[in-house]
Simulated scan of single mutants.
Amino acid sequence: MKEETVSKTIMERVKNTMINTVNYTKIGQKEGEKKQVTGKLIDLTLVEDGDLCVIDFDINKKLSIEKTDKRRQNIIDNILPANVGLVKTAHGGLHAYCNRDGYTLPSNRCVKCIVLDNIEIDIFGQMIKYKEHGGMEQKELVQNRVVGPNSSFRETKNNKRETLKYEAVNDWANMTHLVSLREILDSWNVDIEIPFKDYVDKVNMREFGWQVTEEGTIDRMNDEIAQACVNGLKNLEIHNYPQPINMEVSLLSVFSGIYGITNEQIRAEGMKNIRQFNKLTANAEKNYGEASFSGERKPNPWILTKILRNHNKDYYEQIIKPLLKQNYEVKKQQKISDIVQQIEKHEIDLKDPFT
């Protein structure tokens, strides 16, 4: 991305894209209409650089306020980097503003990358600017709107009228040099940068790779997968500068992954293997200590699976991928077991048509 773009604040990038909302609704104000302005919509299609995107964390609305707040804070603390613009949504979810930075999304909005019982994560970005009809591009723009901060709307819940607000969590308006979408998705072990047809075909095949928990934290990696990852970190060229993982292996990503391993013996073996079985560039050797310190501050073991998927592909397909699938099946069966126990605990009769 151009420095001219990344150095602009979010407000500078969206100031000409905002549409007023009126009368505590999410409906845009029509030209000449005189109604009370109660918020703003941001149309990502109108962002000139075409690169701003929003990650939407939708937290289960049935959860208590305390549990919702805890999950939102977990998301901020555990799975998002610092340089994102943050907006708390009306129902306690979160919008995280980042740069698409060339990442090819399959569509403009509601691109689901993770779906859990209590958290769903969608991405909104500018991919298609103009509507199509009969295979021909039209002059009409595709609307791609998200609600901006300092916006209010009302809804009726339990026969009670409530006013809900979208509020900036950090210095949203003045944020610059936003992190790239790729960096965030890489840290979650999520890859949706594929043609739309393939995306549809594979959407049900990639769940085993998700490692974000219902609590909004990074899932713990079991020892079997951790050991397999450490065993596979061999014959790699490790660089100093943190490029996207699909391009090259950086020392920071390796340290982040190894520090995320909870088994001390496996972690120690991984540390020893970095230099013993891999080639470090001169700059990587020079900045070894600094990268180690930075990696320890943001541990995430699942980055190792991403490294192996891109840079030790045969090993990933033969060893890591089956383990990830197995891990997914175990978690799925545990989830089913938990539901059954809950049903038995409350003595729910599944044959009762009124249950």
Rank of each mutant, 00 (worst) to 15 (best):
K8E: 14
K8A: 09
V14R: 01
K15R: 13
K15C: 10
N16S: 05
M18G: 02
I19V: 15
T21G: 03
V22M: 02
Q29S: 05
K30I: 10
K30C: 13
G32V: 05
E33Q: 15
V37H: 01
V37G: 01
T38C: 09
G39W: 02
K40W: 13
L46A: 10
E48K: 13
C53N: 04
V54A: 12
D69I: 08
K70M: 15
R71K: 14
D77Y: 08
I79F: 10
P81C: 10
G85D: 02
L86G: 01
A90W: 00
G93E: 05
L94V: 09
R109A: 11
V111W: 02
C113L: 10
D117N: 11
N118K: 13
I121E: 01
F124C: 03
K129F: 03
Y130R: 06
Y130D: 05
G135Q: 11
Q138S: 10
Q138D: 08
N150R: 15
S151A: 06
R154E: 14
K157Y: 14
K160P: 00
A168P: 00
H177Q: 06
H177V: 00
H177T: 04
V179E: 14
L181V: 10
R182F: 05
R182C: 15
D186T: 08
D186G: 09
N189D: 07
I192D: 01
K197N: 08
D201C: 13
M205P: 00
R206C: 07
G209S: 12
E214P: 00
G216I: 03
T217G: 07
I218S: 04
I225N: 00
A226P: 11
E237G: 08
V249K: 01
V254P: 00
Y259M: 04
Y259E: 01
G260E: 01
I261S: 00
I266H: 01
A268Q: 06
A268N: 09
M271V: 07
K272Q: 12
N273H: 06
T281G: 09
A284T: 02
E285G: 09
F293L: 13
P299A: 06
P301A: 14
T305Q: 04
H311L: 07
K313V: 10
K313S: 10
Y315N: 11
Y315K: 14
Q318R: 12
I320Q: 02
V330G: 00
S337Q: 11
D338H: 11
E347V: 13
D349A: 08
P353K: 14
